[in-house]
Structures are given as C-alpha cells and as structure tokens.
Computed example of a mutant assay.
Amino acid sequence: MTASQPVPAPDFVGYPEVRRGIRALLQGRPATHRRTVPACPEWTVEDLLAHLTEIAERVLARHGGTPPAPAAGLAVPELLDRWDDVGEELDRRLADAGGHSGEVMVMDAFTHELDLRAALGVPPPAEHLAWAPSFEVLVRGFSGSVAARGLPALRLRTTGGSEWTAGKGRPAASVTAPALELYRALAGRRSRTQLTTLDWTEPPSRWLPAFSWGPFSPPPSPGV
C-alpha cells in the first residue's frame, strides 16, 4: 500500500476530539438515546456509547491502567462521564508510550461518531483530527484484504485529490469517490449496490469481496 500523504502522529491524535464531538451530539438530545443507529442496527445510541466506553477501558488496561469497576445499566450522561475519565488517563498513557498506539481505537471511535451523526441527521465535521489517521487504518486493512484474495492492486482516489494504492503491484483499476463516501465504503457502511455506483475505471465485481475484511462487511441494504 502506498499513500500520497504522510500519516499524522501521534496515532491517537484525534481521540479527545471524538469524545468532545460525541458529547456535543448527545448532551442536548436526550430523546434520541434509545434510537437505533442504522449503521449498527443491533445497537441503540446508548449501546453504541457503552461500546466506545468498553473499548477505551480495554485499551487502558493493556497500557497498564486500572479501569473503573464494571457498572451495568449506565445511561448516556453517566457513560459520557465515564468515557471521559477513562479517555483522559488513556490519552496520558498513550502519550507516555510515545504516541504510537491506539490508532485502531481512534478509527473505531471516529467511525462511530459518523454513525451517530448519520443517525441523528447531523452533517459530518468539515475537519477533524481523527480523519486522516482513521482513513489510513481503513486503507491499510482494505489493502491487506485485496492482497490476501490475490486481486490486482486498486487505486483509491478521493475527489479532493488524495490517493492510495491498495494491494500489491501496479494498480489495474481505480475507484474515485468523495472522501466521506470512500471512508464509509471502506468501513463497511455501503452496500454492494452502493459500491458499484462509485466511479470505477473497470467493472468493480472482482474487487467487491475485498470490502469484507476484519469486522467490516457491506450491509445487505443501502447504508448511511
């Protein structure tokens, strides 16, 4: 995989901004806390926040911290406070470790911030510190999927001018989309039908299986 832009450092650079963004989304919307999140239809908004808090606690424990005692049935306000408490210690520990850890956690959190924004009808942020490092994680995972399936390399392009090569060797085709659409496609938030409507230079069918990788897979119906 090659990229046209360097990866910002440290790897956890956008994590506090994700926490602030999600707090701002949820604090003034108590009626939405039980709403289903379409991108994660098995979860409500509250469930998704509980997931983010649990992931932070796991990563904190891996870096030598002591997460708070388990607590079931926390509502959104308590979960936000718990996530901030864990996240602030985690930020310090990741910084002390040199900042070269936490990138997958940041990608997961930022992807879910986009999920929440879509669920609540709030546009994505115009700029975000987690954007570039999260995109790099997704491109790297997709690139591994292309290579593992023995597929020809694929050029990924955004309409804003960023590009990457996914897979090994010279690209046999390219796919171009607005940055948000490409991000959501790589993160399993776009159906196979939606994937085919992106701007491909070759028929996309051979590369569609590569969009199933790690925890991600295209949903059966159009995603948001």
Rank of each mutant, 00 (worst) to 15 (best):
8 P>I: 10
194 Q>K: 15
99 G>F: 00
128 H>R: 05
153 A>V: 12
20 R>P: 06
79 L>H: 01
206 R>W: 07
157 R>I: 11
162 S>K: 05
155 R>H: 15
220 P>A: 11
214 G>Y: 10
61 A>H: 13
64 G>F: 06
183 Y>K: 08
206 R>P: 14
223 G>F: 13
36 T>N: 04
206 R>C: 13
142 F>G: 01
68 P>N: 04
165 T>Y: 01
126 A>S: 12
103 E>F: 05
105 M>E: 12
34 R>C: 12
180 L>E: 14
137 V>G: 02
88 E>Q: 07
144 G>D: 06
147 A>S: 13
13 V>K: 05
158 T>I: 04
16 P>I: 02
203 P>M: 03
196 T>R: 14
214 G>C: 02
122 V>P: 11
39 A>S: 10
71 A>T: 08
130 A>R: 05
26 L>T: 04
186 L>V: 13
22 I>K: 12
175 V>W: 07
95 A>Y: 06
61 A>K: 07
42 E>T: 03
2 T>Q: 03
61 A>D: 03
65 G>Y: 14
59 V>F: 14
31 A>F: 14
27 Q>F: 08
50 A>D: 15
221 S>D: 06
209 P>Y: 13
142 F>R: 05
86 V>A: 04
157 R>T: 15
37 V>T: 05
141 G>S: 00
56 A>W: 03
119 A>W: 01
45 V>H: 01
90 L>M: 11
71 A>F: 06
47 D>Y: 10
40 C>S: 09
162 S>D: 15
53 T>P: 10
119 A>D: 04
37 V>W: 09
102 G>E: 03
163 E>D: 15
206 R>G: 15
214 G>P: 09
181 E>V: 09
80 L>V: 04
183 Y>R: 02
153 A>Y: 15
9 A>T: 10
9 A>E: 07
80 L>A: 11
30 P>Q: 08
128 H>K: 07
19 R>N: 10
221 S>H: 08
122 V>Q: 02
180 L>F: 03
60 L>I: 14
222 P>G: 03
